[in-house]
């Protein structure tokens, strides 16, 4: 049941509990309980909105930073990852396999702001050994949804057998 709810709300968190109950065939109170439980258990961690900022008249720059770090004795990567993700500018942090350790994505008003963050906050951290910063030029798809303009038209004929 939990999985069914999650699949239904994964791409549309706006859906009402009433509709969810009908669509999945459970009663509304149960749906509400399950969702509450999942929020408490840290399964559902938030309900953000997917925004295409390119279409809004305000400047935002996103950068992806490859970070190499020295893991700390007894704490592995957890401590350093936490020190990084706690910064408000940081949107995403992943621990990676391969040539570097952490992927850090940050959002700033402009390039200046991002380079300030890298130079003044990220790079000087003791266990960070190197950083490589890449600026995002355009976002095409996020969270499984294409960031396209407008709604696509229904091109089917109105009545078919």
């Amino acid at each position: 049941m939990k999985e069914k709810i999650l699949n239904a709300i994964a791409k549309n968190s706006k859906i009402s509990k009433e509709d969810l109950a009908i669509m999945l065939g459970y009663d509304e109170i149960r749906i509400e309980q399950e969702i509450k439980e999942m929020e408490e258990e840290g399964i559902i961690c938030g309900y953000p909105t997917l925004i295409n900022w390119d279409n809004v008249n305000c400047e935002k720059v996103t950068a992806l930073i490859e970070v190499k770090v020295t893991p700390q004795r007894g704490q592995g990567f957890e401590k350093i990852a936490e020190r990084i993700y706690k910064f408000d500018e940081v949107e995403t942090v992943y621990l990676m396999s391969g040539g570097f350790d952490l992927t850090v994505m940050i959002v700033g008003k402009n390039m200046q702001e991002i380079s300030n963050f890298v130079w003044n906050k990220l790079a000087p951290l003791e266990s960070v050994t190197s950083t490589a910063t890449y600026f995002v030029l355009k976002k095409y798809k996020e969270h499984g949804l294409a960031l396209v303009n407008g709604v696509s038209e229904d091109e089917r004929m109105l009545i078919t057998p």
């Binding site: 089917r156 004929m157 109105l158 009545i159 078919t160 057998p161």
Partner: peptide
């Protein structure tokens, strides 16, 4: 029989259709 109804519907510009079979 569906053809006949199709002709009526297609003249109505802003109709919402629940009539498709695909």
């Amino acid at each position: 029989g569906i053809r006949k109804f199709f002709d009526i519907v297609s003249e109505m510009k802003d109709a919402i259709s629940l009539g498709v079979g695909e």
